[in-house]
Design a protein around this nucleic acid. Sequence first.
DNA 1: TCACACTTACTGACTTGTCAGTAAGTAGCC
DNA 2: GGCTACTTACTGACAAGTCAGTAAGTGTGA
Lengths: 214, 214
Amino acid sequence: MTNAPHPVRARRVPRAERREEIVAAAARVFGSKGYRAGSLAEVAEQVGITHAGVLHHFGSKDKLLWEVLDYRDRVDVEHLEGQHIPGGADLFRHLVRTARLNADRRGIVQAYTVLTGEAVTDGHPAAERARRRFEVLRGDISAAILAIAADQDVEVTRADADQAASAVIGVMDGLQTQWLLEPDVVDLPAATRSAILAILATVLGGPDHLPGDL
Amino acid sequence: MTNAPHPVRARRVPRAERREEIVAAAARVFGSKGYRAGSLAEVAEQVGITHAGVLHHFGSKDKLLWEVLDYRDRVDVEHLEGQHIPGGADLFRHLVRTARLNADRRGIVQAYTVLTGEAVTDGHPAAERARRRFEVLRGDISAAILAIAADQDVEVTRADADQAASAVIGVMDGLQTQWLLEPDVVDLPAATRSAILAILATVLGGPDHLPGDL
DNA sequence: TCACACTTACTGACTTGTCAGTAAGTAGCC
DNA sequence: GGCTACTTACTGACAAGTCAGTAAGTGTGA
């Protein structure tokens, strides 16, 4: 009798590999249900282990969330050749391209939207993270605007560039929410592109100074 | 012995009054913690009754949420004179004014942001509501753009107006999220105003056709 | 052999919702 | 006015479930 000596047990998987599986599953679960509503049991089930197994690897639900956020940041820049965010007009080309890609990555967009929305609730573990993320993005976009302005010989104040940067991030996020609810009504890439163009054109003092081919 | 014949009991309050208290409390709780994370017990505590008392009035947590959303919609238009949303350039004046008001109504903004973010999670009871809300808003804004275009003798397609409308809603929502996380960094009214102006100017084919004094 | 991935078994805290009981208020009637 | 019959607002106890987290044990692969 060599068959079925004991009930089916999950294949023993090396630590690093299992952790990756779990983080990917958690990204899906937290992304679709939210962090507070998503349970460790559901994450575990997707990997084929028990929720205690998940805790064995990450210690607590909060720590798992950190890993998910790190993971998502890594995935976010995966498709970038140089692995670093470009500057100047290239940054906006990158943003528009990201919007185009996002139209086929509903899960990732939903995760970002849900988690960001949840982050503004009282005492949420991802709040600080969301703040930092916005800060960095705003800085990058603002710098890119100032670079284009310098290149085009138009004067733009730091404050105006910052405000335009906030607006660019804002439309991108806001359009994503609408698109998630009604994908057939909102054309995410097109709307994102023209909104960014509108904001850029205005802050640069007219469409004449826009960088081409966004 | 006429004193304390039974433990202190909550003052007995007539139905309509109590329901209002509960809905207001629920709006605070769901607004600050989210619907799924906010508990009936916490709502009840704020009113000074038990969670069973809350259920006596509303039957279920879901039904309480509906009431909260209705309540918020009523409060939203409370400061409008005619109680109805204006059209044409007045609509944009109204939107900018709302942004100004919102800068002093953090709680309401947070409730809107949290609940809208939660609405994109799988099977959320407020999803349909959020969809309808966006649809109506988009329709109103799009119509206002077309009205201004007609007035200014510029040609704007329905599709372009719709897209601009989505963008206007998007910036407003997106900026609110950033402002909630960093109120000192983001100037909500100013950023909202200039972003709306930028989008309008572009869809109307240049700043010359903009309505004055937004 | 032994570290490690994991399960089983459990705890304690919370969740929404149900239900019976009770006090407070109200309408009808004498 | 005062008594009765009824409704309504609410409590407290409980059911039934979910949750994260802990502790101890077990099979497995290097």
